[in-house]
């Protein structure tokens, strides 16, 4: 008998459909697909309104991951690729989205997506992705003005958090809440290298620290690293966090503490997910680009 190996790093995939909305009623259907290094998302807009989204794990093959993400979002809706008027690919694997009409950088897409999710007041966006971390400054239209990123090192990225989830055997989605279940805030582990942070963390466990305390220490290290990146670009409110780690309160609260600014939460009445900001931005670009093409065609015709 084989024992099932629990994969602590594995976060659950997500699928959402707008209730009471039928894409067949829409005149323009567009899609944005964000093929990240760790996760892939697809967002489908019906006349510029979010109709469906899907978040899945990126496999070893970008075109397949893109298909999987879009397939997840359209599943059971009767929608096929032919029904989608315009597709924009973004993210790390954006050039490998075979059915995309265009590829746009994830930086532009995250800014656009954040602007749409929160509104024109957003100026600083922190995108904590699977294998990189970016700080983006944008204007009131969601246009990128400046950005800074770390894509060289796992410290401060989702991958770093997966490593610790696995090492400590804690489901990744529980890390945030468990990191607050402590008596006092411990000093952070190494914030420079995930490999060293992991060995430090295991040493602390051996020294008798509770798992929660080690998690707190690890979250603090990650927050420190990311706050350093924010400081380099400068913080201008309002501040919004996108990407998978936006869902990890253990890191988010500690970043807020360090930069002295609270991140704006998603409105209560939305079912959107900060992880889809890039794909949402791409879908919005797709919508705008398709309309532009239509107008150009109408003017020419």
């Amino acid at each position: 008998m084989t024992e099932e190996i629990q994969e602590f790093w594995r976060w659950s995939e997500k699928n959402w459909r707008a209730p009471g909305l039928d894409w067949r009623d829409a005149s323009v259907v567009t899609a944005g697909i964000d093929v990240g290094s760790v996760s892939s998302q697809a967002v489908i807009l019906a006349d510029g309104v979010v109709f469906a989204y899907h978040s899945t794990r990126t496999g070893s093959n970008s075109p397949d991951s893109a298909k999987k993400a879009l397939g997840g979002a359209t599943e059971g809706t009767g929608m096929t690729l032919d029904d989608v008027h315009y597709v924009v690919g973004t993210g790390y694997g954006r050039v490998n989205v075979p059915f995309a009409n265009r590829a746009i950088t994830e930086i532009a897409c995250h800014a656009r997506g954040a602007n749409s999710m929160i509104g024109p007041t957003v100026r600083t966006i922190l995108d904590m992705g699977g294998q990189d971390c970016k700080v983006i400054r944008c204007d009131e239209k969601g246009k990128v003005q400046n950005f800074i990123m770390n894509d060289k090192c796992a410290a401060g990225t989702g991958r770093g958090m997966e490593v610790i989830a696995d090492a400590l055997g804690v489901p990744i989605e529980d890390i945030g809440s468990r990191s607050f279940d402590i008596d006092d805030e411990p000093p952070p582990v190494s914030n420079v290298c995930t490999v060293f942070a992991k060995s430090e963390a295991t040493a602390l466990l051996k020294a008798g620290w509770s798992i929660n305390r080690v998690l707190a220490s690890y979250c603090a290290a990650m927050a420190e690293r990311v706050a350093g990146l924010i400081d380099r670009l400068g913080m201008e409110p309002e501040f919004f966090i996108t990407g998978g780690i936006a869902k990890n309160a253990g890191v988010v609260r500690r970043i807020e503490r360090l930069v002295g600014v609270k991140a704006v939460p998603l409105p209560d009445d939305t079912d959107l997910d900060p992880q889809i900001a890039g794909a949402l931005g791409a879908a919005l670009f797709a919508h705008a680009l398709y309309r532009k093409e239509q107008r150009a065609a109408a003017a020419a015709g």
Binding site: S60, Q131, K152, C153, A154, A155, R159, G160, V163, C193, T194, V195
Partner: peptide
């Protein structure tokens, strides 16, 4: 450049 990322790269090279 990163050990953590290089591990995945080595795995894809193996594949």
């Amino acid at each position: 450049q990163c050990t953590v990322f290089a591990e995945s790269e080595v795995v894809s090279l193996i594949h």
